[in-house]
Design a protein around this nucleic acid. Structure first.
Lengths: 225, 225
DNA sequence: CGTGCAGTTGAGCAAATTCAACGCTTGTGG
DNA sequence: CCACAAGCGTTGAATTTGCTCAACTGCACG
């Protein structure tokens, strides 16, 4: 367990630029049954191999799901943003650890309550299936990015983030360069270099390290190939 | 549509070393309702963006699911082996193309029939969810492999294949080096070099290109890290 | 006996990593 | 208020890794 303090993260939360995931039916059962909880920056939400007793839905903030390999490298499998549901496993145990990236407000629901409902209400069952299915789609997108060059990975990552908020022209990255690197299978140095290169190419602007302004979507897409 | 001939693939099918996926409840509804069909080597089963009307379960043979990027590179997202179910999408369209790698016998079921059943029978609904959930798990495993070095990718790939048949000491690879490369995000040359290196290190033996004998699992795991 | 396909091997090159130094910002303690 | 340490990000130089291009092998088929 990590001891954390709510230092300078408060402003980040309220400025969070990510909207509710678009184009999907709302998870009504989860919304109505969830108990809101607050997790501070870097707080562990659950650990790998722990029993998967709860389901989570982000109201505000951001979460990373990751796994450590034996030699100490970290693989971030997914970032979750407001509207996303996570923590749903097929087995009884979590396959990943989850941590809050910034101070986050998260709905927490007992898994057994949801699965019990799903046995009687086919709408809830469909909802559960849709959550897993959407997550599968996300991970497959991620796969597509990982086989490419460093520039394509970073460009693809930024585009996917930007497209979560239709029409958005800038985003505040909740995650560090190290988080991005562990997600993209690169080093922090490479991520940093590519970001500066993208700025030099006038595809994006970087008023600060955590703030990305989209300057030329077509050019960013072209880098992404 | 590709015109294909059943050339020298007949022997491969009967020798297929992969068993039914272990540790999972059998997909009874799919098994009983499926119509068996034969797909020849390199035959397209469905194409990207086509309506997802059917669900598939492999009886014998092997299938690749892939996507082409705009510059002509191919990303293989998954290999399916006997016992695997594929073709289930959340949207109305397929996100990938699927082709038979070798001549394959495959059960084909109307998606609408299954989803209709799921509305009344919660066991079928759970089964559908389990299929998606298992696929998610597979893709997450794949993710873990893609962030690593070439040696780790190939070693991890071989280990995952070998572990599908508990206690198996050798496998006949249904896929070409190009398929492996497109799955692992490497070039054929690199795959080939790593295989020879693993043989030189006495982790595996290669009586022929498509036949891999496990000689030292511990050593192969160590390469995998 | 040649042709074609799949796989291997080698040499040179490009890309990403490693190691190291440096800059900026923020918080802490004198 | 200033000095300084810590965390995060950037930049540079050397090294390693995997890719590209090319030749070559083995095998199946006609």
């Amino acid at each position: 367990m990590i001891i954390q303090r709510a230092v300078q993260a408060k402003s980040l939360e309220s400025e969070n630029p990510f909207g509710h995931r678009a184009g999907e039916a709302d998870a009504a059962a989860i919304d109505s049954m969830g108990a809101p909880m607050t997790f501070h920056r870097n707080a562990e939400i659950y650990g790998e191999h722990e029993p998967a007793e709860y389901l989570y839905k982000i109201v505000s903030g951001a979460v990373r799901a990751y796994r450590m390999s034996s030699d100490g490298r970290r693989q971030i499998a997914a970032f979750y943003l407001p509207g996303d549901v996570f923590g749903l496993e097929n087995g009884e145990l979590h396959g990943f650890s989850a941590e809050a990236i910034t101070d986050s407000k998260i709905l927490v629901i007992k898994r057994s309550a949801i699965t019990a409902m799903a046995e009687r209400d086919t709408a809830v069952a469909r909802e559960l299936w849709a959550v897993t299915s959407r997550e599968l789609e996300q991970v497959q997108q991620h796969l597509g990015v990982l086989i490419k060059s460093a520039e394509e990975r970073v460009a693809g990552f930024l585009l996917r983030l930007l497209r979560r908020v239709p029409g958005a022209t800038q985003i505040r990255l909740p995650m560090s360069r190290q988080d991005m690197a562990d997600y993209l299978g690169l080093t922090i140095e490479t991520v940093s270099r590519v970001m500066t290169r993208l700025e030099a190419a006038e595809a994006i602007a970087l008023p600060s390290a955590r703030c990305v302004v989209l300057r030329d979507e077509a050019r960013l897409s072209r880098v992404h190939h």
